[in-house]
């Protein structure tokens, strides 16, 4: 065998890992080849150096740290105890939820704290709307529709035509009247026309009394609209 072939087998030869025939061939070569014998001595020297290395020891016992960590895992913070069987498969999951939740709370708190300063509110933004009153109240009356029972004028509450004509100063008037849940008129608003000239008419409208409008059996406030012109004064058919 050539030296290169022998040298490839020296490691296995040292460990007794060659077949008997191969081992004999290597041994025979080493008896006659000084260079390969020197190479073997160097490899043995490396093994001896490695074998002489001191065993490294941890400065403190690892066991105590391991047992402490295991105790924390198995005892676990609250949630881990509740879901012990589930958490037992991966003990670190449950304890890790708690710091994760704490981090989440901290981040959210910080975000809210940083965001609490004054800021310019855009007109019409949701923040400027405030609280929307309940539907069917005087502040948010319903509109006449199929499901709403319209208010009826009570006896004596009907608007006298003479008053109407006397109070109307001429021109065209478009008026919104809100009939409250108790049958009174809570609001009269001139949407179009001369409100000053129509003052007496508006006062008369405010004095009207109704049987309140009803929605699903309960009284609701409702908006009524009237269009009045100087040539034709009439109440809408309601």
């Amino acid at each position: 065998m050539r030296c290169a072939s022998i040298r490839r087998r020296l490691s296995a030869w040292m460990d007794g890992g060659l077949s008997p025939a191969a081992a004999r061939a290597v041994s025979a070569h080493l008896d006659t080849c000084e260079a390969c014998a020197r190479r073997l001595a160097e490899l043995r020297g490396v093994s001896e150096l490695l074998g002489e290395l001191p065993r490294l020891e941890a400065p403190e016992s690892i066991a105590q740290d391991v047992l402490t960590r295991l105790e924390v895992e198995t005892r676990g913070p609250g949630l881990g105890m509740l879901l012990r069987r589930f958490g037992a498969a991966r003990p670190f999951i449950m304890p890790s939820l708690v710091p994760a939740a704490l981090v989440l709370v901290t981040v959210l708190s910080a975000a809210l704290a940083l965001d609490s300063g004054d800021r310019t509110r855009l007109p019409g933004s949701i923040a400027s709307w405030g609280v929307i009153p309940a539907r069917g109240t005087e502040s948010n009356p319903v509109f006449p529709s199929a499901g709403v029972g319209l208010p009826r004028e009570r006896d004596g509450g009907r608007l006298d035509e003479e008053v109407l004509l006397a109070g109307f100063g001429g021109g065209t008037l478009f008026v919104e009247t809100v009939v409250a849940r108790d049958g009174t008129v809570s609001t009269v608003t001139v949407l179009e026309g001369d409100a000053e000239r129509a003052g007496p008419l508006l006062d008369a409208l405010r004095q009207q009394r109704y049987e309140p409008a009803r929605y699903r059996g309960r009284p609701v406030a409702i908006s009524l609209y009237r269009l009045i012109s100087h040539t034709d004064v009439s109440l809408p058919k309601i």
Binding site: L10, S11, R39, A41, E42, L43, R44, G45, L49, L50
Partner: peptide, 25 residues
């Protein structure tokens, strides 16, 4: 076995000046 042989050979080259000290063979 092959990794061991290569590792030993690499160490032999790197530690050639150390091998032989103190009567190392």
């Amino acid at each position: 076995k092959s990794r061991l042989a290569r590792a030993r050979e690499a160490l032999r080259k790197r530690l050639s000046d150390v091998v032989g000290e103190d009567g190392q063979s």
